[in-house]
Design a protein around this nucleic acid. Structure first.
Length: 410
DNA sequence: CTTCCACCGGAAGATGGGGGAC
DNA sequence: GTCCCCCATCTTCCGGTGGAAG
């Protein structure tokens, strides 16, 4: 049934996000400054708290891993340094409480984990101080995607734990990583001053740097002569256009490789890259849509039908009746307008729809006009798929079945 | 320059579902 | 069971906003 592909890859893993190259391309300045900021650790001093910011896929996490690995190795040479590094990705964790429980578990062994709910908050904190003190020495805590935390509490407590007498043995340093620029500004001044002792900004990669990165990985990942000329440049160009995001460019190259493998072609062409891009886009939309609630689906569906009738761009006020009637058809209470706007906002965050602000002054006021940003049929397919597949909202699924011809609404 | 429109978006808090400790 | 706490979703309330009309 299965047989080994005659493969264009020699090491597909080199394109994956978690692959760690021996050398990071295009981040020399940033890494040098980062290294300086970490220097106190080696000197056995109280470590700096460091705050890194920059958009996604610009090497923040990779750079951190890279430097900290070296730091751990190098620290081992000095007898008087006990260094512990713990990394925690805060994605999906929205509160300080959640962070605290995960941290406690990071320091405890498998058999001794605590549950992530149920304890009073203060109990969790004191467990955390106990664990930290038990380890002692220098402890670096990396909080990746720290902007997902909605309250300051842990960010306030951690850097001050020693000063507040919660810790006596351990010297801790916090490294916060964020891709949300406004996060830093929204921190309370107390937290900002302690957390952001050292700040490093990682700028987006330009097309040239992306080419170098892709080249470096492609050399490892593919056999010689598999890539047509221009393929790397094209992947880099797409990445640079979107956000200077290396991860995205690498994903694209990998997807193109996978397509080549599926189709049994021997080389990767520019056309394959374009197909891959479309495929990734489709995946992104599906994923976005499947994460929506029932009302999200209804709002989207309402907008789609309007789009098909050529009534877009359309303001939220004019979407509402359509949405309301859909909701009523499936016997669901429609949401209040404010909430409906939230859903529209969410959809435009996902890039499925787009909003343009308009202002007609005294007689019109300010409002937004929405339209579907992606290919309507693609969105519709994804919508139908998730609704039937997930099986959640049966009533909505029925509705879609009845309505195979959307023209009904005209 | 002021007025005013109609939506925007932040804030607070209600509701209901969950999970676990003790 | 009772107590603690988390979380997503939604409602209610309301001050903010930018630019055409006056």
């Amino acid at each position: 049934m299965f047989e080994r592909d005659t493969d264009i890859y020699c090491n597909r893993d080199a394109l994956r996000e978690d692959y760690q190259p021996d050398e990071l391309v295009g981040r020399d300045d940033e890494l040098n400054r980062y290294k300086t900021a970490l220097q106190p650790v080696i000197n056995g001093e109280q470590p700096n708290n460091i705050f890194l910011y920059g958009k996604t896929g610009v090497g923040k996490t990779a750079g951190t891993r890279f430097l900290l690995d070296h730091l751990v190795d190098d620290a081992a040479q000095y007898d008087d340094i006990e260094l512990t590094v713990k990394m925690l990705n805060c994605d999906g964790l929205s509160s300080s409480y959640q962070i605290a429980t995960r941290l406690v578990n990071k320091f405890r062994n498998e058999s001794n984990q605590i549950s992530t709910t149920g304890y009073p908050r203060s109990t969790v904190y004191s467990m955390l101080w106990d664990e930290l003190d038990k380890y002692g020495g220098t402890i670096l805590i990396v909080l990746d995607e720290v902007d997902h935390i909605n309250d300051d509490s842990i960010l306030y407590q951690l850097p001050r734990a020693r000063a507040n007498g919660n810790l006596s043995e351990a010297k801790i340093g916090i490294i916060g990583i964020s891709n949300d620029f406004s996060f830093r500004d929204d921190l309370s001044p107390k937290v900002k001053s302690s957390l952001c002792e050292e700040e490093l900004q990682f700028p987006a990669y330009d097309a040239q740097e992306l080419i170098e990165i892709l080249q470096q990985r492609a050399d490892v990942a593919f056999h010689d002569d598999v890539l047509d000329s221009g393929v790397i440049e094209l992947c880099a160009a797409y990445g640079a256009k979107d956000a200077g995001d290396a991860r995205q460019s690498l994903d694209l190259l990998m997807k193109a490789g996978d397509l080549a493998r599926d189709r049994d072609t021997e080389t990767i062409t520019e056309n394959l890259v374009r197909d891959a891009r479309e495929e990734l886009e489709r995946g992104r939309i599906r994923e976005g849509i499947s994460g929506l609630t029932q009302h999200g689906h209804l709002v989207l569906y309402a907008l789609i039908t309007l789009e098909q009738q050529g009534e877009t761009p359309v303001r939220s006020r004019d979407i509402r009746p359509r949405y309301t009637s859909f909701a009523e058809q499936i016997s669901v209470d429609p949401l209040v307008p404010r909430r409906m706007r939230d859903h529209l906002g969410e959809l435009s965050m996902l890039g499925i729809i787009s909003a343009v602000e308009r202002n007609e002054g005294r007689r019109g006021g300010t409002y937004r006009q929405y339209s579907v940003d992606m290919d309507v049929n693609m969105v519709l397919t994804a919508l139908e798929e998730t609704i039937t597949e997930v099986g959640v909202h049966e009533s909505v699924a029925d509705k879609f079945d009845q309505d195979t011809t959307l023209g009904k609404y005209t």
